[in-house]
């Protein structure tokens, strides 16, 4: 069973698409897309154990960090490029987004919503939030660029990205009421304007 946010991402990818998955982990999404939607694709992954897991699944993978890994690909090589739950840990967010729409027609990102009400409560209580989506202490977190859906939308506009789809999730289900406060995860699909 595919993780809910990955299943939603998969729905945004057309059958037969060429897909690049940045930080592809154990290759679950790419293997799923290959097996159910006839997609072909590559992953970029830095971890030895995840590269091994991809190899076991027969998923094509490049072992590299995302920023140098993206440079390995020529312009418009892919239909869709996915960056799942990693944007907030990127050092050069703008560059990565620009690179995504260089190598592919469309991009999909997901990230934890820092604007969740529980984070606000935690901050009001004088502490940095620690939640299932952001389970780190302030001193050991890899998340250096946390943002809210609104923040992301503003950046996307500034970078000339057209957002075509948005889903805000709480407990892996879309949230309709007060989503920017209640959603834990934000999912976007965008393309070059």
């Amino acid at each position: 069973m595919l993780r809910r946010d990955l299943a939603l991402i998969a729905q945004w990818i057309e059958p037969g698409a060429r897909v690049l998955d940045l930080g592809c982990g154990d290759g679950t999404l790419l293997a799923h897309l290959r097996d159910t939607q006839r997609c072909s694709g590559y992953g970029i992954e830095i971890s030895d154990s995840e590269v091994l897991a991809c190899t076991r699944r027969g998923v094509s993978v490049m072992q590299a960090d995302l920023e140098s890994g993206l440079r390995m690909f020529a312009d418009d090589m892919f239909d869709t490029v996915v960056l799942s739950q990693t944007l907030q840990a990127m050092r050069h967010v703008e560059l990565v987004l620009a690179e995504m729409v260089r190598v592919a027609r469309r991009g999909i990102v997901s990230f934890p919503n820092f604007g969740h009400w529980r984070h606000a409560v935690s901050l009001l209580g004088g502490r940095m939030p620690v939640t299932p989506e952001i389970p780190y202490q302030w001193y050991d977190t890899p998340n250096i660029h946390l943002c809210t859906p609104r923040d992301f939308e503003l950046l996307a506009a500034r970078l000339g990205l057209r957002i075509t789809d948005r889903t805000l999730l709480a407990r892996a289900r879309p949230v309709a009421v007060l989503p920017s406060l209640r959603a834990t995860v934000a999912l976007y699909r965008f393309e070059k304007r």
Binding site: S40, Y42, D48, V51, C54, T55, G58, S60, V61, M62, Q63, A64, M72, F73, A74, M77
Partner: peptide, 21 residues
């Protein structure tokens, strides 16, 4: 190695490229 991987990817080949530390 990356250069090779890149050229194979450009040809649409299935490839695992690993960099062992």
């Amino acid at each position: 190695g990356r250069e090779l991987a890149q050229a194979l990817v450009a040809n649409g080949r299935e490839v695992v490229y690993a960099e062992i530390d």
